[in-house]
Amino acid sequence: MDRKDFFNSLGMSVATLAVINCIGCKKSADSSNSDTSGPTNVDFTLDLSASANSALLTNGGYLISNGVIVARTTTGTYIAVQRSCTHESYNLSYQATNSRFYCPNHGATFSQNGAVTNGPATKSLTTYNTLLTGTSLKIYS
């Protein structure tokens, strides 16, 4: 290896390490500053006759609105919880067949009432009230 190749290789190695270090720092900063709590002062209404909310017409369907997952259980009851995992704020999904909320990032699961059923999360989800009046579904704190 000649001198030019050596310095070229050395430069690439240093650049690679710098990039990896920066990515690690960003992830740490994001994790420590992430808000793992649900939104506060929630008060909104979904029109179930609107096509955008059609997922809630079927048992087991869900949607995300205003930072909240609104779901219809397999028995037809409406439930609402914060949309993000309390472990690291990744988006949750609702798994109706398992009656739970699931975080695909680290595998945390939560019951339909927001309680942790599998870690690494240790804090329950923020839950919200629901009130169905005709085709209007109100979600509120």
Rank of each mutant, 00 (worst) to 15 (best):
S93R: 13
F44S: 05
S9R: 12
V68P: 01
G38V: 07
L10Q: 05
S124Q: 11
F110H: 03
S37Y: 02
S84I: 12
I69C: 07
V81L: 07
S89W: 04
K123Q: 10
S111G: 15
S9H: 10
T45C: 00
G38Y: 02
G60E: 04
G107I: 02
N105Q: 15
K123W: 03
P39I: 06
F44Y: 10
N8S: 13
I23G: 07
C25P: 00
S37R: 12
R100E: 15
S84A: 14
L92F: 06
T117Y: 01
C22W: 03
R72G: 02
S31M: 09
S49L: 09
S65N: 15
V81N: 01
A29H: 09
C103E: 00
N21G: 13
A50E: 13
E88Y: 01
Y78E: 01
G60W: 00
V14S: 05
S31N: 11
A52F: 05
T75D: 14
T97H: 12
V116Y: 02
S65E: 14
T75R: 06
K123R: 13
L46I: 13
L48K: 08
S37I: 06
T86H: 00
Q82P: 03
C85K: 04
S51F: 07
N105Y: 07
V116M: 01
F110V: 06
T45V: 13
I64M: 08
S99P: 11
A121V: 04
L10D: 06
L57W: 08
A121M: 05
N59M: 08
Q95T: 14
G76R: 07
A29Q: 09
G11Y: 06
N41Y: 07
A71T: 09
D35Q: 12
Y62W: 14
S93G: 15
R100H: 09
P120A: 03
P120I: 00
T45F: 02
G119T: 05
G11S: 12
S31T: 13
T36W: 04
S34V: 11
A15W: 00
L57T: 15
M12G: 11
A96L: 12
A108S: 15
N53E: 03
V14N: 02
P39L: 08
T122Q: 05
F6V: 10
I23P: 00
T75K: 10
F101G: 03
Y102F: 15
S9F: 08
A71S: 15
I79V: 15
G67C: 11
T74K: 14
C103L: 03
L92V: 13
I69L: 08
T97D: 15
S84D: 09
S93F: 05
I23M: 06
L56I: 10
N98D: 15
T122H: 00
N59Q: 11
E88C: 10
S51C: 09
R100L: 11
T45S: 09
V81A: 04
G76L: 06
A80N: 07
T75Q: 14
F101E: 01
T117I: 11
